[in-house]
């Protein structure tokens, strides 16, 4: 493969957004309600690197170390992972359904995860210790997606329209159950509300480790199926005519998407617009091939959520705004702009 690193080329742009991601990560480390001087943050950061750490383990207090290493870093990494998972999920779902205004939540992930989270809150079960809510949110969203898929399965195939409509119907049904659970236990409203708005503030290294593994596997599998998804984007008949096993490709893409997005949602709650917008930004920058769109939208999603989370963390002193509110505030105007571009034929979806 020959790389063209000329200004404006795809590899050039890919390198630029990757650099922006790293700069955003470093920038985010310095932000927070507790003001820690830049050199101190830098020393703490380097103190964690094997060997280098031996020369940078001085000049900071235990409290500063805890704030940077145990509070900020897992949240930053969480934002990167969740942003990447949502954006990759959006690319996959938009390709499979040939619909530019879908996002991963449309396939039942959000309603399933919400049901799992609210179930954990209302029953107070501790089957998986402190991570019960996350594990149940993850498991329920996978089960719901499988149920929707099974309901839509007709004569050996799953028509996309059936799947979308079944997804909407099941989601509404589950929302009613969630509403009933919240109604019967008003004390849950505030925690459930926080979960629905999406927040990364409580994310730990342990959660990052689990979700990172799942999202990484999901990303690798999705990218390996990019050719099939490109074909699906042109229509099922076209895909079939060039030898793609359409149903198998759809099933694997949707299941792998569900795995990655469910894992992400389980630690962050529902964060909107990342999965809807970032694949479009990626297509505007890099064209329509999923081989490029999936990894680059992951990077763009990570940058977007990271910066949104920075605003959420730093816009008010001492407290955080749920990041879902920020992505919504930023996302809607951007979405309107995209709609205009799409309606004018500004780029190929």
């Amino acid at each position: 493969m020959k790389f063209n690193l000329k200004y404006g080329s795809r590899p050039f742009k890919a390198i630029v957004i990757t650099i922006i991601l790293f700069i955003s990560i470093i920038f985010s480390l310095f932000l927070g309600p507790v003001k820690i001087p830049l050199p101190v943050v830098a020393r703490i950061f380097f103190s964690q690197i094997p060997l280098v750490g031996n020369f940078a383990h001085w000049g900071f207090t235990g409290v500063e170390y805890d704030i940077v290493v145990l509070v900020r870093e897992p949240v930053i990494l969480g934002a990167v992972i969740v942003g990447a998972a949502l954006a990759m999920g959006g690319s996959s779902v938009q390709s499979v359904f040939r619909n530019p205004i879908t996002e991963p939540y449309i396939i039942g992930i959000s309603s399933g995860a919400t049901l799992g989270a609210v179930f954990a809150l209302s029953t107070q079960v501790m089957w998986f210790g402190a991570y019960t809510l996350q594990v149940l949110a993850f498991s329920f969203s996978i089960v719901v997606m499988v149920v929707i898929y099974s309901i839509s399965f007709r004569s050996g195939r799953v028509p996309p329209m059936y799947f979308l409509l079944s997804g909407i119907a099941i989601s509404l049904f589950l929302s009613a159950i969630v509403g009933l659970m919240l109604f019967s236990n008003k004390r849950l409203e505030s925690e459930a509300f926080a979960w629905l708005l999406g927040s990364l503030s409580g994310v730990t290294w342990a959660e990052d480790a689990v979700v990172f593994t799942i999202v990484l596997i999901s990303g690798i599998v999705l990218t390996s199926f990019s050719k099939d998804m490109d074909a699906l984007q042109m229509g099922e008949h076209h895909a079939q005519s060039i030898g793609v096993n359409v149903e198998r490709a759809k099933l694997i893409s949707l299941l792998v998407t569900t795995l990655g997005v469910s894992a992400a949602v389980s630690i962050s709650g529902l964060i909107g617009f990342v999965g809807l917008l970032m694949p479009h930004v990626s297509r505007m920058l890099f064209g329509g091939s999923n081989r490029i769109v999936i990894p680059t939208s992951a990077v763009l999603g990570a940058i977007f959520l990271l910066l949104a989370n920075d605003i959420a963390r730093d816009s008010l002193s001492y407290t955080e705004i749920p990041v879902g509110i920020i992505t919504g505030l930023v996302g809607v105007p951007f979405f309107m702009y995209l709609l205009r571009r799409i309606s004018r034929g500004g780029y190929v979806t």
Binding site: D66, S190, G202
Partner: peptide, 19 residues
């Protein structure tokens, strides 16, 4: 110091800072 708590948001960083 007064820590601003949200609807259900714990100001973790500010709390840690108070040891």
């Amino acid at each position: 110091p007064v820590l601003t708590i949200g609807e259900s948001s714990l100001p973790i960083e500010a709390i840690v800072n108070l040891t």
